[in-house]
Design a binder for these strands. Structure first.
Lengths: 239, 239
DNA sequence: GCGACGCTTCGATTATCATCAAAGCATGGC
DNA sequence: GCCATGCTTTGATGATAATCGAAGCGTCGC
């Protein structure tokens, strides 16, 4: 089967048609529209909104991935899909408009997360949002976290010293059988932030030292003036 | 076959999927992209760019029409298709961008007609462009032209007098076996302008009286100050 | 390790669709 | 009136794809 096949000239029209075909199935359209708010969803959830079985959804999602309309991130036994790039979002919005209902596009915009909850929030018991993602990046850039198999992390010697100096109780994170440190997909930023026992200790430290403060009624976190200064001075981070 | 069928709830996702399906065939994508410059094309021409036979093209075009992506105008034994509404153009451009090639979108924009040629031009030997369409409208509104079968026109008694007073040689248009007056689809305005022997006489008058002047090297026509004043005073037209 | 769970692959079934040749139907030119 | 032309409809054929059940494969929780 390998030898030859079609010449496949791949003109713009052919690429356009491929994308059109990817949008053509109602189940796939429902999935894509459901992803318009930017949040990643698992295969199971997308199967539900698509109104099809898990097997069918899997086929659809591979097809959307092949058409480069979505991209997937494996996280444990889950698989999270999200729209790929802003072009896809623009395409879907144009599609909604052409379909007569600007309602869908408006709805998507309304469903976009508000600024405060994007800036910083808690995810279970660790830091998430822009702040969470930035800290996660910074710890790797400093060489304090070393990525192991999968999305697991180990703390280097420099990291151990540095984190303890900040007031993070790394030793406490090691007791118990909880996973020590791993990457968790951030649903507003679509990148990874630090989860696990170590992530929880980092958030505990930040609250204890007054770097962040919990907002009432939400998972949003406010970064204090103290926090902003400390992040700059001790981690070299400009928020 | 009429009774019942599916319930057909018609959610936004379903409408989106229908549009996606309309874009899905390579032949249809080629046709649509070819229409991106706004010019109407005949079924035969679209069949050629689609790379399919006339029968297949006909099916495709009916489908695009059903999806409200194009609309058709019958003109004699030809049938001209054009993109329907600006939303369709926006959708196609978003599709091109998502397909990786912004080239197609740029190309389409480049192919959009320049302002002067849109404003007024000659089409064979009669007036076209915005000016041509406006005059055509005005002559009907004044009751000077009366629409007959198809797109043929007859000149009324009032029309005969009015046109002669303007300097149009209506009698000259009647000699010979040339079609007297009929509607011609304007490719920038996508509406009708006046063609045939009478249309030629109108343009001849406008040139003779200095209402319009031919631009060098193009089919564009410049409306002179004299022309603007005459159109306002004698036909009640504000350009 | 073991079972539960999330997800994917495989196989089979069914529906849809793209395509063309041939025939039909208008329109325009003479 | 007649023929050529542009377009559509019809009928048949082959390809594609949507769907699900069942089985397979990692991963997590214990």
């Amino acid at each position: 089967m390998a030898a030859g096949g079609e010449p496949k000239p791949d003109t713009p029209a052919l690429r356009a048609a491929r994308i059109g075909a990817a949008l053509a199935a109602p189940a796939r359209a429902r999935m894509l529209l459901h992803l318009l708010d930017g949040r990643p969803r698992s295969s199971t959830e997308l199967a539900a909104v698509g109104g099809v079985g898990a097997a069918t959804a899997s086929t659809h999602l591979r097809r959307l991935e092949a058409a480069r309309l979505v991209e997937a991130a494996a996280a444990g036994r889950h698989r999270y899909y999200r729209l790929r790039g802003p072009e896809t979002g623009a395409l879907l919005e144009a599609l909604c408009v052409a379909a007569g209902g600007n309602a869908a596009a408006d709805m998507a915009r309304a469903a976009a997360p508000a600024a405060p909850i994007r800036a910083a929030r808690s995810c279970y018991d660790h830091l998430a949002g822009i702040l969470g993602v930035r800290i996660h990046e910074r710890l790797q850039a400093l060489g304090w976290l070393q990525r192991g198999a999968g999305r697991e992390y180990a703390v280097t010697a420099a990291g151990e010293a540095g984190l303890e100096a900040l007031g993070v109780d790394v030793a406490a994170a090691r007791v118990g059988r909880r996973r020590f440190a791993f990457g968790c997909l951030d649903w507003t930023e679509r990148r990874w932030h630090l989860a696990g026992a170590l992530g929880a200790e980092v958030l505990a430290m930040a609250l204890r030292r007054g770097w962040v403060r919990r907002e009432a009624e939400t998972r949003a976190l406010a970064v204090t003036r103290t926090g902003r200064r400390a992040l700059a001075a001790r981690l070299g981070m400009q928020l």
